[in-house]
Amino acid sequence: MTTTLHFTKGQGTGNDFVLFADPEGEFPLDADTVRALADRHFGVGGDGVIRAVRSAHLPAGEAALAEDPEAEWFMDYYNADGSVAEMCGNGIRVFARYLTERGLASLDRGETLSIGTRAGVRDVQRNATGFQVDLGRWFLDDTETTVRARDLHAARPGLGISVGNPHVVVALASNDELDGLDLSYLPVLDPSPAHGANVEFVVPSDPLVIDGVGHIRMRVHERGSGETLSCGTGAVAAALATRHWAGAGAPHQWRVDVPGGTVGVRMFPAEDGEHVSLSGPAELVFSGELAL
């Protein structure tokens, strides 16, 4: 039987997604369907696929509602290879724009939209650049990891950071090193995390801090998607790692330049520990129909 899917293509700093609404949870995704939708030659094309489903119709969504009864909508997110992902920082901003522009939710300035994810409930607000999401507490992984990448001379140490999904951040010495990486190949991590990790390569700007804001450049190989033009949670992990390396006196506000644009990162205290937020643009590019 042929199913007609009404979809929307969205992007946040070049990190692009196929989105569709399935409020009652009647169209669960399998890996083959995700790969077909994300295929850039035979499908719509994207770094991931996002299904908008009411939290009450998913087991993970029920957990989100138990955490926050206001989390009506769940971001059912999949990487381009069909694998399930816990969170996506750019994706959740695009998801918020999708919900509001399709009339599925409202979000005026000063208000908060609670969204369920597999990493827990995340709160989104509007700001001057588009949307800002509180990614909650972050955690430092003390595992000593080395990273090898194609066209990178010698293995480098990586710093493990979790912001709801796993990251390993590598500091590079120059823009030439960063630009010379071939991230069409999967970086090799030793030891290899059981569930994989996003890998970020970072170069600090010179000077590192301007007017109290830290500046870095980053490229990323995303778990399940390959190199992307941007990774929101990766930008957050990169800023956290750079602050960690810089030591006392490093700023809590950062600008992260990625191939697809610029996002903002801010660290701030909360009742359960330090939280980190991500801000940046989110756009809906086009909509259409696809027969599956």
Rank of each mutant, 00 (worst) to 15 (best):
L208D: 12
V265Q: 12
A154C: 05
A250P: 07
V256C: 09
T145D: 13
V220W: 03
R126F: 10
V170N: 12
A71Q: 08
H244M: 15
D142A: 14
L19S: 04
G212K: 06
T117F: 03
R217E: 12
A56L: 03
A194F: 01
G89K: 03
V34L: 03
R109Y: 15
S277A: 15
E70W: 00
L152G: 10
F201K: 11
P187E: 05
V49W: 06
E271G: 02
G82T: 07
D142M: 11
Q125Y: 01
G234T: 05
A149Q: 11
V263M: 11
Y185N: 12
A149E: 12
T33Q: 13
V220G: 07
D30I: 02
Q11R: 08
T233N: 02
A85K: 01
A154Y: 08
A237H: 13
P166N: 00
P187S: 08
V170A: 11
C231E: 02
A96V: 07
V133D: 15
L5H: 03
A96S: 14
P23T: 04
A155W: 07
R217I: 01
G82S: 02
A238K: 00
L278K: 07
E227K: 10
G249A: 10
L189W: 14
V188E: 15
A237E: 14
V169T: 15
Q11T: 10
L292W: 15
G110W: 01
R137Y: 00
V276L: 01
A291V: 15
V258K: 14
G130D: 14
S184Q: 12
H6T: 08
A270F: 09
L37V: 01
S279N: 14
V202L: 05
I92E: 10
P157W: 00
T112Q: 11
P28E: 09
F201D: 13
A194S: 04
Y185I: 06
D182Q: 00
F95E: 06
G158H: 09
V34S: 03
G247F: 07
V18P: 14
P193L: 05
W138I: 03
V18M: 12
G264F: 12
H167V: 13
A60I: 07
T145M: 13
R156G: 04
V188H: 15
T112L: 07
I92D: 09
L178V: 13
G82W: 11
L113V: 06
V168M: 06
E271M: 02
T228G: 06
D206H: 14
H153T: 12
L107P: 13
E227W: 10
A80P: 04
G136W: 03
G116E: 03
E177W: 07
N165P: 07
D47N: 05
G91K: 04
D211I: 02
T3C: 09
A38P: 12
R148A: 08
G110L: 13
P269I: 09
L107A: 14
V202P: 05
C231N: 02
D190H: 15
G249Y: 14
S205M: 10
G280W: 12
P28F: 09
G110R: 06
T145N: 09
R97K: 15
G288R: 01
G14D: 00
G45A: 08
R93T: 12
V169H: 02
D272S: 03
F42M: 05
G212Y: 05
A21G: 01
R156N: 13
D108L: 04
S184Y: 09
E101M: 03
A246S: 14
